[in-house]
């Protein structure tokens, strides 16, 4: 029973893992940029929700459009004016650059909002229902469903919209896309904006049940990386698969050991994946 409970928790958690990893995967898949500042997008999304809740008393779930829009704009501008400068340089330049961005965002947030952890408490925080003896918190369930919907929406967008197809064409062959008249730099900026936007939404969702603090980003970056390696780097549906697997593993190992060990186990899993199956469980990740 305890195990099934842990399994359920893991699956519910896996949804949000998938959501905040999808953006990471998208950005890597299209531009080859590893966004070390990824966790900071989550942190900013979470603070967006926190302040809207704190000041305007907006329900956390109604703040999603704000974090989507806010982070889209930030991501767009970052790519347009900063990261685009190094897209033609060796990829390591972009890693170091996003590392710098990570430092700036995390520490500006620290200066602005102090290191205090904050929480959002709504009327339904902690409320849950029982289904065949398993406790399901409402917030986690809603979060899970929204996450699935957003990842699905992203997938649809990439495959069925004009912009989505331009993004895919650019990801496959940048030079070809340029010849076809696609404004590659613009597409990059939109892609980064999109990735940051949905990651911001994930941050908003996280804020409804976890602490919000400036230093929260780093573990999320690492988890996102594990999820994406599990599912295959750059392959969006892989984020869903990786997210669910990692959610379950994390939740079960937390039950058996402690959460500290669970981080170590997650990393060990990542290590095994890189050793034996670097293209992810789906085998569709970008490896070389």
């Amino acid at each position: 029973m305890l195990f099934i409970q842990a399994l359920t928790n893991g699956i519910l958690l896996g949804g949000i893992y998938a959501l905040y990893s999808a953006g990471f995967s998208l950005i890597f898949g299209v531009m080859g940029v590893v966004n070390i500042a990824h966790g900071e997008m989550i942190m900013l999304g979470a603070f967006t929700t926190y302040w809207l809740f704190e000041i305007l008393r907006l329900d956390p779930f109604t703040t999603l459009p704000f974090s989507l829009f806010g982070l889209f704009v930030l991501g767009y501008l970052l790519q347009r004016f900063v990261i685009n400068r190094v897209v033609d340089a060796p990829p390591i330049m972009s890693y170091i650059m996003t590392f710098g961005i990570h430092l700036v965002l995390a520490n500006v947030a620290l200066l602005a909002w102090t290191a205090d952890p904050r929480t959002i408490t709504t009327s339904y925080s902690g409320a849950n229902f029982k289904l065949m003896g398993i406790t399901i918190p409402y917030i986690k369930l809603i979060t899970f469903l929204i996450s699935l919907a957003v990842v699905g929406g992203l997938y649809w967008l990439l495959h069925h919209s004009r912009t989505g197809r331009a993004i895919q064409a650019t990801a496959q062959d940048r030079r070809m896309a340029r010849l076809m008249g696609i404004n590659v730099r613009q597409i990059y900026a939109v892609t980064f904006g999109l990735g940051a936007g949905i990651t911001g939404m994930a941050g908003s969702l996280v804020a409804s049940f976890r602490h919000v603090e400036p230093a929260m980003g780093l573990p999320y970056t690492i988890t996102a990386f594990c999820v994406v390696v599990l599912g295959g780097m750059g392959y969006i549906p892989g984020a869903l698969i990786g997210g669910l697997i990692l959610g379950v593993i994390g939740s079960v190992s937390t039950m058996v050991f402690t959460s500290g060990w669970s981080t170590a186990i997650t990393f060990f899993l990542l290590f095994l994946m890189l050793l034996f199956r670097p293209a992810g469980i789906t085998g569709r990740g970008i490896v070389e």
Binding site: V229, W261, A264, F271, L274
Partner: peptide, 20 residues
């Protein structure tokens, strides 16, 4: 693998060892 994997695997390594 691509340098990207090395960059983040090492990034995660330090955190994981700290937890251990």
């Amino acid at each position: 693998l691509r340098g990207a994997y090395f960059a983040i695997a090492t990034f995660a390594l330090a955190e994981a060892l700290k937890q251990v």
